[in-house]
Amino acid sequence: MLTLTVVVILAVMLAGLARAFFARNVYDRVLAANLFGTKTVLLIAAISYLFGSPDFLDIAVVYALINYISVIGVLRVTEMRVIAQQEDKG
């Protein structure tokens, strides 16, 4: 069952990658990257049980933290740019 889960996670990662490449706008890509990040957390957690080495879980924790930071960071910076553009226009 764990094997099936890992395969499913890999497939979903592939979908996220495809969407990240063919995305129409920034937010789509951010969403894709976010999806990709959460799936990586799951993948590493699942792999750590599949391969039987619980040290990997540390990496999963880092991913969970970093993924959140990068999504918020990306949105904040794009927001800054939107504000700057609006100020240019107005």
Binding site: G16, A20, F21, A33
Partner: peptide, 21 residues
Amino acid sequence: LVASIMLTSIYGLLSASFFVT
């Protein structure tokens, strides 16, 4: 360029998963 950066981030995630395996 924003798209490239998002893809760079994904690249980082992927290579780190690879290092884990």
